[in-house]
Computed example of a mutant assay.
Amino acid sequence: MRLYAQTPARRNRQVLVDLIALLLIAVVVWGAFAVREAIMRLAEPGRKVESAGDGLADELGNAGDAAGDVPLVGGLLRKPLQSAADASTGFADAGESLQEAVSHVATVTTTVLIVVPVAFVLLLWLPPRLLWIRRSMTMRRLADAPGGADLLALRALTGPPRDLAALPVPPGGLADAWRQGDQHVIATLSEVALKRAGLRP
């Protein structure tokens, strides 16, 4: 299986298109992760709220524990401090929820920004490449098969006339020479068909 043409012009075009496709995919992935990083910055307030809430809850909890040790009124002093600590934990939970929401949005956005453009690039790039690979394999098998040169010559005759313009025309024309089995003309025409496909004899 041949991935690239043997003729320089077509091979260079194929390599260039492959490089452009890979570059586009790389740029898309890089851009998507840059967007993800920008979105994740929105989670910073959530991290600060979570950190502050946890810190405040710990401090109030410690204060409540200390107040609980006060004789007679320890229970009364501890209760409001514990309630405040619980409220601070709620703030921390809210901060964590904000971070999770931002992370979810960032993940979905990144996935969409990668999948859609990459699928579009692959849709434009892969089918022609795979089609050429399949055709080149068919042409090569045909060239190596008995009587394949005749079929390739016929393919050249039925193809674009510009490919035949540079060929010397025998008396009666190329088609007549092919019908009469002129091996030189058949070989020349088969070379034209192979060259058109980017292959060498």
Score class of each variant (00 low, 15 high):
131 L>I: 14
78 R>I: 11
184 H>R: 13
10 R>T: 10
128 P>V: 05
109 T>P: 01
66 A>I: 11
50 E>V: 10
110 T>G: 04
54 D>P: 09
26 A>V: 06
52 A>V: 14
183 Q>H: 01
60 L>I: 12
22 L>E: 04
156 A>R: 00
172 G>M: 03
10 R>N: 13
70 V>I: 12
97 S>I: 05
38 A>R: 07
179 R>N: 15
98 L>R: 12
152 L>A: 02
31 G>C: 01
140 R>K: 06
76 L>E: 09
45 P>S: 07
37 E>I: 12
186 I>T: 09
12 N>V: 13
89 T>M: 06
69 D>W: 12
95 G>A: 05
139 M>P: 03
154 L>F: 01
148 G>I: 08
143 A>G: 09
74 G>K: 02
100 E>C: 05
183 Q>C: 00
63 A>N: 15
137 M>F: 14
24 L>W: 02
19 L>M: 15
173 G>Y: 01
63 A>W: 08
105 V>L: 12
50 E>S: 10
95 G>K: 11
133 I>A: 03
133 I>Y: 03
120 F>Y: 11
41 R>V: 15
154 L>Q: 05
74 G>V: 05
9 A>L: 15
29 V>E: 08
10 R>K: 15
182 D>F: 01
19 L>N: 15
139 M>R: 07
47 R>N: 09
17 V>Y: 03
142 L>F: 00
18 D>C: 14
192 V>R: 04
111 T>N: 07
188 T>E: 04
199 L>Q: 11
124 L>V: 07
123 L>I: 08
124 L>G: 07
99 Q>Y: 14
170 P>H: 00
52 A>H: 11
199 L>I: 04
108 V>T: 10
59 E>N: 08
65 D>G: 15
181 G>M: 09
23 L>A: 09
98 L>C: 11
66 A>T: 10
177 A>Y: 01
65 D>I: 11
35 V>S: 08
107 T>M: 11
70 V>S: 08
134 R>T: 05
128 P>G: 09
113 L>T: 07
127 P>D: 09
130 L>S: 12
172 G>A: 06
1 M>S: 10
77 L>M: 07
125 W>T: 12
38 A>S: 08
179 R>M: 15
117 P>A: 00
175 A>Y: 12
158 T>N: 12
59 E>L: 10
22 L>P: 00
33 F>N: 02
167 L>Y: 05
8 P>T: 06
156 A>V: 02
28 V>Y: 06
5 A>W: 03
170 P>R: 00
75 G>F: 14
